[in-house]
Nucleic acid binder design. Structure first.
Lengths: 161, 161
DNA sequence: TATTGTTATACTCTATAACTATA
DNA sequence: TATAGTTATAGAGTATAACAATA
């Protein structure tokens, strides 16, 4: 060990190195979940953005394309295309908005509702299979670190603005 | 509380519910990191897939398009397009393979190397800012749960095959 | 005048299939 | 015969800009 390198320096560097591998692990798990998602999408003949739209629709109920554009963080034009696809595949319909004749209400069909239910059930099932056996005390720490990290992230993003 | 619902049942349900919110948190953090990535890409005039290719290239050194296709899990045709874009933007060049005249070695330019260095440095910086202040004992639990979960995931995937 | 959604246009990522050059 | 990469073709997601209908 070089003489300019104190034990504390070593510990600091190890800690930093570890932080990097922890981020890698978070991203790895996320990639695995995404791959599982992609499989579901292929089975259903859907695509990622369309599933995302259905997921949002399931949480919000029927809503305008403007709202969907904001929720998905894409342009209104883009929503037109996604909804076109979901109409063609029979998952949603465009309903007249009762109060505003400019707007349409994107509404799930029976098929769309079934898909959304499957999505929600699959999500819960995956979660319980992944985390159901983790002891409560460890799960608490895990969840707390996730929350702290997400909060820290938000702070960092504001600093950069 | 309904009389058919024992305390243990309640605890079980709470645990399962918690598992679902934990998965949501993992995905949320992952989405935040992705958004940060997207910002970097826009700054550099790059796209997600192209940055991914550069990242892999940085870890592997110059390599064939076949290798890149496997590493990125896309078709060789797709790599042609990505490399075309990165050649046009001056990040990589196609070099003749010394032993196989069919193959090309995708090689970073000086600009490409700078981008890759920025990528690596940014990744390490983000990791240390996100996890650097988490106490070692909590970080250990966090990392261990991530590893266990990823391993459990792999098992689940094999079962489904 | 502002908002909702669409048409027009263009670029990127992705895939399959056929083809060339080389091994 | 098999492999590395490209051309050809197609579809999906994304964006900007201009436009129609409505508020």
């Amino acid at each position: 060990m070089a003489d300019w390198c104190t034990d504390n320096t070593v510990k600091y560097i190890q800690h930093m190195t570890h932080a990097a591998t922890v981020l890698d692990r978070v991203l790895h798990l996320s990639a695995l979940v995404s791959a599982d998602m992609a499989r579901f999408e292929k089975e259903q003949g859907l695509t990622g953005p369309r599933v995302h739209l259905l997921w949002v629709l399931g949480r919000s109920g029927p809503c305008t394309q403007q709202s969907l554009a904001q929720a998905l963080d894409v342009t209104p034009r883009n929503i037109t295309g996604l909804v076109d696809g979901l109409v063609a595949s029979g998952h949603v319909t465009r309903q007249a908005h009762p109060d505003d004749r400019r707007a349409t209400l994107v509404t799930p069909t029976a098929t769309g509702r079934r898909t959304i239910e499957g999505l929600v059930a699959g999500h819960a099932d995956l979660a319980s299979r992944l985390f159901g056996d983790v002891p409560d005390d460890r799960l608490e720490v895990f969840a707390a670190v996730l929350d702290e990290t997400a909060a820290r992230f938000a702070t960092l993003m504001e600093e950069d603005r």
